[in-house]
Design a binder for these strands. Structure first.
Lengths: 137, 137
DNA sequence: ACTTCATATTCCAATGCGGGGATATTCTTC
DNA sequence: GAAGAATATCCCCGCATTGGAATATGAAGT
């Protein structure tokens, strides 16, 4: 049953926050590290979990992996994402996430552009001028 | 976070089916045994799980425990239950559950009445004439 | 080629949950 | 108060999931 898999993805706070952030647009791993204030490994694992269950899509651009909500979504997923939006409005944690995302915007806007670029080829360093630098793990 | 607990309750197929059935009205344990075709222990356990997380309420009436969706629901729960309804429309398993429930109706209508009865005192055998008899475990 | 950055995977220990069997509890009836 | 019906709880086992540490992969720059 598809629906169960969706709920399994949604029943973890970190994954919920990730999905919620993705409703605002694509992001890459390093952004999640900053936004969620978590080390790289758990972030990667949660993204892998979501990817394995087709709740997100991953696209490589150079050394970055860009994560986004799937372009084609099942009816269930669409409904659930909308529902999540409704539930989350009044929640402190998610509101704070949106605030942090707003501040991080200039640093991660290139992601959305890189994603729509017709050539999935690596992005040149210049184009990705705002590439983030993060400490290991 | 409240929302997470709700999702944890929803991420099991049996519990989803239980909640879905309850949206049609209150039921007691023996009905779930029949409707879900599961032994008593797992049914009781899932109901306990849902009860512990306040997704359902339990009311004793004589030797029966009647389970129902909570009279007072949080906004999140209301939204999620509505969402579940939407998602479930096209699903074979849940449609089949509704069919079985329809057939079982004469046998479990007394539950709803017992629940609204002003005196939470035990129901007399006569009033509960259709009381079910089930094999152990 | 070597280094560095970004990200993924693997290994391990801990935990939570589901199923089954047995048993306990609560209420009703006789 | 003893028996029986409805339900709950306990114990044990297996499995999925999670976090941390270490390591591997893949791409870019020099």
């Amino acid at each position: 049953m598809d629906l169960i898999e969706i709920y399994k993805c949604l029943c973890d706070e970190t994954r919920l926050r990730i999905l919620h952030l993705l409703t605002q647009g694509p992001l890459c791993v390093c952004h999640f590290q900053k936004l969620l204030d978590l080390p790289q490994v758990p972030v990667s694992k949660h993204l892998a979990y979501l990817r394995d269950h087709q709740l997100v899509e991953a696209h490589r651009r150079g050394q970055w992996m860009i994560y986004a909500l799937p372009a084609q979504r099942t009816r269930e997923l669409d409904i659930q994402l909308q529902c999540l939006q409704d539930c989350v409005q009044t929640n402190e944690i998610f509101r704070a996430d949106l605030q942090r995302l707003k501040k991080l915007r200039p640093e991660c806007d290139w992601v959305a552009e890189a994603l729509v670029s017709p050539t999935p080829a690596p992005v040149s360093k210049k184009a990705a001028g705002r590439a983030p630098v993060l400490a290991r793990n």
